[in-house]
Design a protein around this nucleic acid. Structure first.
Length: 687
RNA sequence: GCCCUGGUGGCGGAAUUGGUAGACGCGCUGGUUUCAGGUACCAGUGGUCGCAAGGCUAUAGGGGUUCGAGUCCCUUCCAGGGCACCA
């Protein structure tokens, strides 16, 4: 920011606090404090520390997402989503602690037990608010191609997260008029190789499928055994487990009878919650078939091969594309040709459609927690869910609530909060007791910096047209998918409403690394290897600390803290200090350094020419590095090299101070230093 | 398992487009100053042979492209991170 200002740009460099959330609530409970007290005292400490570092933030734009002045607009944005049909309520399967009577985040339910009381965690269906981010899957995917300023790895992670795959949905008719099981597959070409169907334990048709079959009790027992396990725990179950339902379905092209199995490896939430089992060409199906002695039929051979390998001798599934065999009229087609032809035939028969699937799921924003922005919805016995009128915002978080981390949402137990009237019919109604995911607060905060004190609108659209999108966004890699995906989703929605310019919120993304302990491990209080900012500034000075951190390595990499190296930086700053003050008076006499060197007809010595060339090389280096790669470490080494050369010149020339080249070199050195060591550079400049 | 990063002296790192490998700093060695330690300053510092000039060798390992490779290609190994039965 300092560099860009020195370059003449109008720079907005703001700071704020993403202050709601579970960690603050948990920490406050542990200390017997109100989350607000705990949060605000942390903010005060951190603000004071950051100020000591000379970060040049514009504190007049400071925001705090847990203040009513801020979260009123978070609620406003919820209402906007609701109005656009993007917010809806639906059942979600979540971790539930039966003893604490509360929903648990995944990180609170590790190992299948409640982190607080150790009770076995159950899976429970709960009605929750969602945002339809999946409606924007393709836009979010395509938008990545318009972000050359983003690191490739972040874009890759987002693409994987969205997880678009093209294929077809195929309908398999279940015998006995029970209905159809839809299957999504990317490998329609292997349809003749299907030897069974596998469905998730939660498949909606399961009850009807097993009705009347003697296998029903076994199936029910199996479903019960996996039901309470999360997807992750199920994935850790050894082997491919499953049971036969007793029912059969018909392959829509070959007419073959396929046994229907329930398995632990089919995920209810992805695709249709059912797969066609093609053991010869899918490794998971292969393992399942081997474990349960199901038929394996090869229907694709490698492109050059004369015949397909015999199924009984396969060491593993052949998953590549190839040429079809044993596939009726489609035999001898290549896999891509067959996919096209078979999909067309399925469509003609009304037994399938081309389909696209995504891994991306809708965004669950409900939280059964206190420390968050209340969802601005009212439930009326007559009118159902009714949005809180904008004029009634903010829906204030009540100061007093039983914040224990148990017994569900704390707000539910505060009658003054819960009891209200319906905005539509005026009758008695209750408020939504849930609060919003903190990712909502952080999905738009950069826009609030435009108008941090505005009470009429969340931000000025005119100012947004001037400032937005963010030119340069800096954050940790941990935000690669969630925060950066949600913020992009919000921005796209806001763009549709003409509230923001452009189509992506962050033009350039920079992921900074972490400072590690001396032995390359994460700093943490439990390890006792932290370096406090207050302490470090007191010991080394803010400028030495700044330069040390910037010099330690490229900022996108982690680096291990080293106390002895800070001393080296202090040495450099002392040398600059001495050098400039030794020649301050001489510089004064020389006047504005460097001005007119080229024009005054002066003949420069070889040493002067060398120094001058070097000075301008360094100016170029630092300017390019700061503006392009942000490799602050090489900027610092350029300044150090310049210092060596200027010192050397002064040692070798008693009359150095008379040389305009020397004066120019000192001046340039201080200007180059200014963004890195602003306090010392400013003081020396003044003197 | 898949995906993404990365691997250069004792250490952090530099080499931006294929063009003098090791900039800059730390540390270390020797020296000057000092009663001494520290500070400050000077010189040296990848390995190896040599009194020296200089030679040879070297960017995780192996192979390749090129007049020329730390950089490009193939392959193996190692480390860190992300995702994880995604049909």
């Amino acid at each position: 920011a300092r560099f860009r200002r020195m370059s003449g740009l109008n720079v907005m460099h703001p700071m704020g606090w993403d202050a709601f959330g579970l960690p603050a609530e948990t920490a406050a409970i542990a200390r017997g404090l109100h989350p607000r007290e705990w949060t605000n005292s942390n903010i005060s400490n951190m603000r004071a520390q950051i100020k000591k570092l000379g970060t040049s933030y514009d504190w007049s734009r400071e925001v705090n997402t847990s203040s009513p002045e801020y979260y009123r607009w978070t609620q406003w944005l919820f209402l906007l989503m609701y109005r656009k049909g993007l917010a809806y309520k639906a059942e979600a399967t979540l971790n539930w602690c039966p003893l604490d009577q509360t929903i648990l985040a995944n990180e609170q339910a590790e190992g299948g037990v409640c982190w607080r009381c150790g009770t076995k965690v159950e899976r429970r269906k709960v009605n929750q608010w969602f945002f339809r981010i999946t409606n924007y899957a393709d836009k979010l995917l395509e938008g990545l191609d318009r972000l050359p300023g983003w690191p490739e790895r972040v874009k890759t992670m987002q693409r994987n997260w969205i997880g678009r795959s093209e294929g077809a949905t195929i309908a398999f008719e279940v015998e006995g008029g029970v209905g159809k099981i839809d299957v999504f597959t990317t490998r329609v070409d292997t349809l003749y190789g299907a030897t069974y169907l596998a469905i998730a334990p939660e498949h909606p048709l399961l009850k009807n499928i097993i009705a009347g079959h003697e296998e029903a009790p076994l199936v029910e027992a199996f479903v019960a055994s996996v039901q309470d396990k999360s997807e992750i725990d199920r994935a850790q179950l050894l082997g491919r487990q499953g049971v036969f339902t007793g029912a059969y379905a018909k392959n829509p092209l070959s007419g073959e009878r396929l046994p229907i199995w329930v398995t632990n490896y089919v995920v209810a939430e992805y695709g249709t919650g059912a797969v066609m089992g093609v053991p010869a060409h899918d490794q998971r199906d292969f393992e399942f078939a081997r474990a349960h002695e199901l038929h394996i039929r090869t229907v694709v051979k490698p492109a050059g091969a004369k015949r397909a390998p015999s199924a009984s001798k396969l060491p593993s599934a052949f998953v590549d594309d190839g040429v079809l065999v044993n596939s009726g009229e489609f035999s001898d087609m290549s896999s891509p040709e067959a996919r096209k032809a078979m999909t067309e035939k399925l469509v003609k028969r009304g037994a399938g459609t081309a389909a696209i699937n995504y891994k991306l799921r809708d965004w669950l924003i409900s939280r059964e927690r206190y420390w968050g922005a209340p969802i601005p919805m009212i439930r009326c016995p007559n009118d159902g869910y009714v949005p809180v009128p904008e004029s009634d915002l903010p829906v204030l978080l009540p100061d007093k609530a039983p914040i224990t981390g148990t017994q569900g949402s704390p707000l539910e137990h505060v009658p003054e909060f819960m009891n209200t009237t319906c905005p539509k019919c005026g009758g008695p109604a209750t408020r939504e007791p849930e609060t919003m995911d903190t990712f909502m607060c952080s999905s738009w905060y950069f826009l609030r910096y435009l108008s941090p004190h505005d009470e009429i609108e969340p931000w000025s659209v005119d100012d947004a047209r001037y400032w937005a999108p963010v030119d340069h966004y800096i954050g940790g890699i941990e935000h690669a998918v969630l925060h950066l995906m949600y913020a992009r989703f919000f921005y796209e929605v806001l763009r549709e409403e003409n509230l923001v310019p452009g189509d992506e919120p962050f033009m350039r993304l920079f992921n900074q690394g972490m400072v590690l302990g001396e032995n390359h491990e994460k700093m943490s209080k439990s390890r006792g290897n932290t370096v406090g900012i207050d302490e470090a500034v007191a010991t080394y000075g803010a400028d030495a600390l700044r330069i040390y951190e910037m010099f330690a390595g490229p900022p996108e990499q982690d680096f291990p803290w080293s106390t002895t190296r800070v001393a080296g930086v202090t040495r450099t700053l002392k040398r600059i200090w001495r050098l400039v003050l030794t020649h301050a008076r001489a510089l004064e006499q020389t006047g504005a350094a460097g001005v007119g060197i080229a024009r005054d007809g002066r003949v420069l010595s070889v040493a002067e020419k060398d120094l001058r060339r070097s000075v301008h090389e360094k100016i170029k280096n630092v300017t390019e590095e700061l503006g392009d790669r942000m490799h602050l470490n090489t900027c610092v080494s350029a300044i150090m090299t310049l210092l060596n050369e200027v010192e050397d010149f002064a040692v070798k020339h008693d009359d150095a101070a008379d040389s305009p080249v020397f004066a120019e070199a000192l001046t340039a050195m201080l200007l180059l230093l200014a963004p890195f060591a602003p306090h010392i550079a400013e003081e020396l400049w003044e003197r």
